[in-house]
Design a protein around this nucleic acid. Sequence first.
RNA 1: CGGGGCGUAGCGCAGCCUGGUUAGCGUGCUUCGUUCGGAACGAAGAGGUCGGAGGUUCAAAUCCUCUCGCCCCGACCA
Length: 410
Amino acid sequence: MVMRRSEYFIPMLREVPSEAQVVSHQLMLRGGMIRQLTSGIYNWLPLGLRVLRKVENIIREEMDAAGAHEILMPGVQPAELWRETGRDEKYGAELLRFKDRNQRDCVLAPTHEEVVTDIFRKNVRSYKELPLNLYQIQWKFRDEIRPRFGLMRGREFSMKDAYSFDVSREASLAAYDKMFKAYCRIFDRLGLQWRAVVADSGAIGGNYSHEFQVLADTGEDTLLFDPEGDYAVNIEKFDAATAPKPREKLVEKKGIEVGHCFHLGTLYSEKLGANVVLEDGKSVPAVMGCYGIGVSRVVAAAIEQCHDAAGMMWPAEIAPFDVGLMTLRKGDAACEALAAQLYADLQKMGKTVLFNDRDASAGEKFAEMDLLGLPWQAIVGPKNAKEGIVEWKNRQTGEKLMLPAGKVPF
RNA sequence: CGGGGCGUAGCGCAGCCUGGUUAGCGUGCUUCGUUCGGAACGAAGAGGUCGGAGGUUCAAAUCCUCUCGCCCCGACCA
């Protein structure tokens, strides 16, 4: 996949729009990745969408590998279903309600426990069909009191939500562990620094609620963790819980919550009558767990963690393109020829390339590429081009390599 | 919802207090020329219902009323 900058839709901005406060928001706006439509609601432009899709795909692969099955549930749901669980009232104004043409009460889904449990109760009868884990990647709508910080707290956001169904508490906790491990793989693959923190160890017993936090100085949550062990906790929960470690021995860092694993028990299955028949003929409510990842938030969190004064610095796995190719002198025969060759070579190698072929000054192209933050820049200058040399710059380290055409540093 | 701020060209802003020709500046955009390794230079252009409605006035971006939208702080939250 190779894309010419001149033919692509990347409406970049030189200046920071006044509406953007946080760095991820500013850079995504400046890099032409997103545009705000209205408060807390965004358009995803091609470059931003590429990152979103990459994050989705990593999640999808690991969820599939963990035995979960992808489904897709509707955003528009009957309010009736929400009355069954009592969340119609509980959710309050954050739940967007409206009526269809027949005056039926509808809601725009802020989450999908009700619907997935409805699928279960209508389609699963026997313990033989369990364990079952259904997940989707879908846009949620929560009418936040105050949306802010760009993608970090929007009203409409993409979420991967998985729901496990099991015959017993033991089986459900095993499912939880499986998801927990899948989450660890997901966040490792995303190329981000992260911690799983204990979110609540109360009523359920054991640690069966974890938040997954991407570490970033700009994060809103404060985490405490043991530098020598696995223990990590959100400072909000620290005082409430009996801590296994004294405060002084724990390190404090800021984080952005991007995932949450939660053991639900039979809360929803009982209310909605989602039962399975066991071997002995008795019927019991399914034991559930739910597992969310804020997909669109991950994109913003990655920028909050990985950026410098010049712009974004994408981890390789989720970068919108692998390479930013640029010629420093448009019209120079040697440059054009070498760039064309590179362009073809990289394509053959299966690398994705954004070719900045605009007729702009060298400085402007450097600045643009630094802002977009692709992992590698392939720089074709007039002098080096004559000798068939390409300069490779690593965006994260700043390291520069001079390599003959045909060789790539990664 | 309470408190604060802001809506003037794609983006960033001045002008408003103290009403008065064709509403400016920077940047971006278009065209031409010169440049060509860190957001080049010169020249010529295009681009505006001054958020909207009503009012005051000979005259409103500017004053008054209402209204819509966006941002920030707080409560709340993935």
